[in-house]
């Protein structure tokens, strides 16, 4: 099959057009001071193409936390679970992978690469990281290190 139309710059792996409406990141006030840290300069190749039939996409990502974990959710529609790589190195989580285009055959076969790095706010227990993939969304669960967790201090009643 040959491509006759598409409504996005490369592969559609991100859902939002930052210039229209809803795709603006909603940033908490605290995170505003933090945005420079979140996105690393080296993966700023959103519109980058690598050759004619391979292109690189930066997927949309969220970061959440609770008392014991950080959670990164990332839009990765159409990937094969086994083709997703999740790596952590020096406090930076990098998710990468590739997929083939639908209905492409022979010379028209295109490969789409996706890659996104997220700098984690603090050290995490790297050996206990888990990832799950559902409905085209990857969720990475990153446990905070024991010693870094906020501790609730019990106040004893005076006698």
């Amino acid at each position: 099959m040959r491509l006759i139309e598409r409504n996005h710059p490369n592969t559609g792996l991100t859902h939002g057009d930052p210039f229209f409406g809803t795709a603006w990141p909603r940033i908490s006030d605290w995170a505003r001071s933090f945005d420079r840290l979140f996105d690393l300069p080296f993966d700023d190749d959103f519109f980058g193409y690598r050759g004619d039939r391979a292109s690189m996409v930066r997927p949309a990502a969220d970061l959440y936390e609770d008392g014991e974990h950080y959670y990164v959710r990332m839009d990765l529609p159409g990937m094969d679970k086994d083709a997703i790589n999740v790596e952590i190195e020096r406090g930076i989580l990098t998710v990468g992978g590739a997929r083939k285009g639908f209905g492409d055959d022979g010379e028209a076969q295109r490969t789409f690469e996706v890659r996104r790095s997220v700098r984690l706010p603090e050290a995490i227990a790297e050996d206990q990281v888990k990832a799950a993939y559902e409905d085209g969304v990857l969720t990475v669960t990153l446990p905070k290190r024991e010693e870094d967790r906020a501790r609730k201090v019990m106040i004893e009643e005076g006698k």
């Binding site: 491509l3 006759i4 996005h8 592969t11 990765l76 529609p77 409905d135 969304v137």
Partner: peptide
């Protein structure tokens, strides 16, 4: 609740059209 147009691609072969729509997070 916001509405967005999903990204899509349309392909054509001699005997069919193929439409691929990216809908992350949709069941």
């Amino acid at each position: 609740r916001a509405t967005v147009a999903p990204h899509y691609e349309i392909k054509e072969s001699d005997d069919a059209l193929g439409l691929e729509v990216f809908l992350p997070g949709v069941k």
